[in-house]
Amino acid sequence: MVEFIAYLIAGIATGAIYALAAIGFTLVWQTSQTINFAQGEFVMLPAILVLLAIKVLGAPVWLGALIGIAAFILIFGVGFKLFVVDPMIRHGVLPLAIATMALSIIMKEGAKDGFSAEAQTFPSFVPSQTIQVFGASISLQHLAIIAVAFAVIFLLQWFVGGTRLGRQMQATAQNPTVARILGIPVERMVLLTFAINAALAVVASVLISPIYLAKFSNGEVIGLFAFIAAIVGGFNQVRGALVGGLIVGIVDSMAAAYVSSSYRLAVPLVLLVVIILLKPEGLMGRKEERRV
């Protein structure tokens, strides 16, 4: 039981990271029909950029973090929208999906060639200690991840549902034509979505890198689990991505502990197939209608 609690906390912590990535993924999907196959690399790269800024510029950690994060949001939030999605979307959704695969290769190989092929330590903002709760030793880092990730997600929920700007964004996602008629600057809203996606990726990256180290290949697993989380939770909802992320994180953590450490990846994959077979619209999702 004591062990179980520790694994549960670890699962919720990694699940919160997957949820952040999955939420960004669904937001971008909703507003621009972009399936971003580079989503995992989006979570991998900010940490690399931060380390690069610290190393190359010789900047202190806080300045390096600021520069790396700003550069990432500028290039992969705004730049991604303007220079990849915009020119590509007129050819259709399929070429765009393939372009994001090409982007994922560029990001991954670029991080390997331009920075390092080895895993690098990443500065943590909380001490790597454990505390005792009911006899279970729980890592402070896991607790910090859960706290920050949930704070960010609730902030986002409040922004989307409770502010004028957020509701305009929601309207854009639901029906861009009507939104435009109502005078909402649709283009700017879509751009905002991409910036938010990049910002969420940054949060996920900064949270997870102290534990898993910063490595060019980190994106593979994170990306895969973010996709699974989005599908398990339901493709068209932020809430769904949150639930999906947590489920995948917990399942992954339990699988590592109780099934097999070399096949821990396989268990969430089975979950994916079961969901697609039984409830393809996801646990929280609504059925989408087909239009001609």
């Binding site: 399936i35 895969l224 996709f227 994916l272 197939v273 697609i276 393809p280």
Partner: peptide, 11 residues
């Protein structure tokens, strides 16, 4: 959905 299923299969 085929993309995600094949992604999982590949892994």
């Amino acid at each position: 959905y085929l993309a995600f299923v094949t992604l999982a299969f590949s892994t």
